[in-house]
Design a protein around this nucleic acid. Structure first.
Lengths: 389, 389
DNA sequence: GGAAGTTTCGCCGACGGCTGGCCTAACTTG
DNA sequence: CAAGTTAGGCCAGCCGTCGGCGAAACTTCC
């Protein structure tokens, strides 16, 4: 073990890698008293609690150490193009109170974040907490984000957001650090941490109104130079040069196989479908046109994904989003195309699965991202110092 | 500064970030005596040398610290499909002796590495060094490599190499650690470290007989789950479904725009071209068919690269390889297609340039990779301990 | 040329964090 | 209930680090 700070010890307790003082000494390589000197402040600040329900292995039973997930709360906001989900969670990311409603991101940062602030205040009250309990804030945005500063950058949708600093909007109400990221990035993070903890290379593909992709490379979210990485929706698909995308280009995957495009195609055939959610609903309802259309869309997505598999060689591809909830046909189409187009070495271990976290995916990711900040060595030391006063 | 070990101090001296003891104290944040305690063993082992040519700034002039690049040598081997370049370099990666010859990788690991061992022995002698001076060994292979173990895995070419452990082949002759990687990965590393030190996200595209791509993500070589990342050559290009690739699939970029394919097409038109090198030669010679063909190939490569730009959002794309030496037409085609197909945010900062390191690229990368191992804290401590005996 | 000012660098006492032995507490086992 | 086993607080001793002190090696000014 290289890391041995207060935060590292706390993370080990949380992860179940250190349940007793003896465990921690063994895992960190530190002596017993060094462990005790970390533990002292952690116990005093309430971040870690002891309980005497340890089992004896033939001698005095060890005190069991537990991460006190109730020592603070996280605010998680998942903003989509037309929806807004806000959660107050404990320090393990479990929701204490949640609210989801329709909200058009194009109403601009002031209106949207005003709504979010209003919601968080009410949810905090419902959870019986106040602003001082907030330890971290995570926000997911449906566009490129400069992660270091929390600013939206040149978003293709999200009019009025360009250059807007999200942390600044929270600064007045909460003292906690604010981390902002692209929505698919945090979804990828959520699936990787929650469902595939051992997997270091994962792609999360969101098939909703549009198509996006979050990349986890070497266990970390990969953002690229301008935070624009993972833009799968505007890769070119074969044979659709006449289809014009909202981005101005032609033959973009999203313009052909995105939820909005599929809904439009279904409407042309006389079916009732206003958005991507309806596409999922119809396909789940085994409406033949919808099922076939979703499967065809899966093939196209798979063809593009095959390229991503060649380039990135992931272990797992998680497919989520409204349309993916029509799962089997979509996944079947994706698998078919990926396994046909990618080389054996890259596909022999590759698993292509459906996302398991449902509509909470984004909020979970936002909470996890916030949590990473909260459990860093520096933040833990700050929390300890604050509790001591 | 977070890192403060012996190796970190050594790397700072090498990078010119710490020229005097005072510099090192400032950069590391350590006190003077702590710096001195690192420096003592480094000076004693000969890895760092002092000279008294410091300039006074009004007082006693500081002793100037220099990384002693002559304290050992590195062996760098760049193995391609049909060539083999071996270098003995100093600890800065500057060549002391080099040899390049044609060698078919399909002759198998024993024959090929036997040849490499034979060459290294002769080059060492020419450089006036012996096997005990070898501090690290870097090897580039034209196929997927399990980097942690140095084994070739399921290479599409390289018959007989599957599962072969390259480090084992060197173990008998040299005590130094052996690091093995894919050839394009080390080329990407070479260009990033030597020509684009501030750039954290870079793609190196090699257009030779085949087409490959090395990815530097967040400053590190990205290898993917099975070491198969960056396989650009077998992405699909539009409208070439009748072209069968040696990989068994159709419409692979490499089968359409690779050097071998271009050479074949030129032969069909009655020109003399046996391999990718001839394609470059003819295009440089302004033979109209060759120039046009290379430019068209550039467009196709660019179309595929546009997808990679969307996904990975790099800052720089470096193009190298035999065909790239026909530079302008190829690069023009690539730029044209990438800037047309990729979104503004990803391209506004993107630079697409030709590789500057020429035929030494792979060997430089192999040396740099070996060097990373040699200058790690652990390796430095080992070297110090060894010198003390 | 010499005195004063400036900067480098080795030496050494003080200090703080860590280790591991010792002792007591709290169990199980026979 | 005694013997054996494990947990955890306490403390002496160790090691690495900091920073003051003074010698050394310069420049600058008179």
């Amino acid at each position: 073990m290289t890391e041995q700070g207060n935060g590292a010890v706390l993370r080990m307790i949380r992860d179940g890698r250190g349940v007793t003082r003896a465990d921690l000494a063994a895992v960190t390589g530190l002596g017993r008293s060094a462990v005790a000197s970390r533990l002292g402040p952690l116990l005093a600040s309430g971040l870690v609690v002891e309980s005497d329900d340890g089992v004896s292995t033939g001698g005095r039973p060890a005190m069991v150490l537990r991460f006190n997930r109730a020592a603070g709360v996280l605010l998680a906001a998942d903003l989509g193009a037309t929806h807004c989900r806000v959660e107050v969670t404990d320090l393990a990311g479990e929701p204490l109170a949640a609210a989801a409603d329709d909200l058009d991101i194009e109403r601009g940062p002031d209106a949207v974040l005003g709504h979010v602030l209003d919601r968080t205040a009410r949810l905090l009250e419902r959870a019986g907490r106040d602003a001082r309990d907030v330890a971290g804030i995570g926000v997911g945005l449906p566009g490129p984000v400069e992660h270091a500063t929390g600013r939206a950058v040149s978003p293709p949708i999200m009019r009025g957001w360009d250059g807007f600093s999200v942390p600044a909007a929270f600064a007045g109400s909460y003292a906690a650090p604010v981390v902002v990221d692209n929505d698919v990035n945090i979804m990828a993070l959520a699936e990787q941490r929650r469902c595939w903890p051992g997997v270091r290379h994962l792609l999360y593909v969101k098939v909703g109104t549009g198509i996006g992709c979050g990349i986890v490379a070497d266990g970390e979210v990969y953002r690229g130079a301008q935070g624009a990485a993972g833009d799968l929706g505007h890769l070119r698909v074969n044979g659709y040069d006449s289809v014009v995308c909202r981005c101005g280009n032609t033959a973009c995957l999203e313009a052909v196989a995105g939820g909005a495009a599929l809904a439009a195609a279904l409407r042309e055939r006389g079916l009732e479908a206003t958005g991507s959610r309806d596409v999922g609903r119809l396909a789940r309802g085994a409406v033949p046109e919808a099922v076939q259309m979703v499967r065809d869309a899966g093939r196209l997505i798979g063809e593009v994904l095959a390229g991503a598999v060649n380039l990135l060689n992931p272990e797992v591809i998680v497919v989520g989003g409204d349309v993916a909830d029509a799962h089997e046909p979509l996944l079947a189409g994706i698998r078919e195309a990926v396994y046909r187009r990618s080389p054996p070495l890259a596909t022999q271990q590759l698993r292509i699965v459906r996302g398991e976290l449902g509509e909470r995916t984004g909020a979970i990711g936002a909470a996890l991202l916030a949590l990473d900040g909260v459990l860093s060595d520096e933040a833990v030391d700050r929390a300890i110092a604050a509790a001591a006063t």
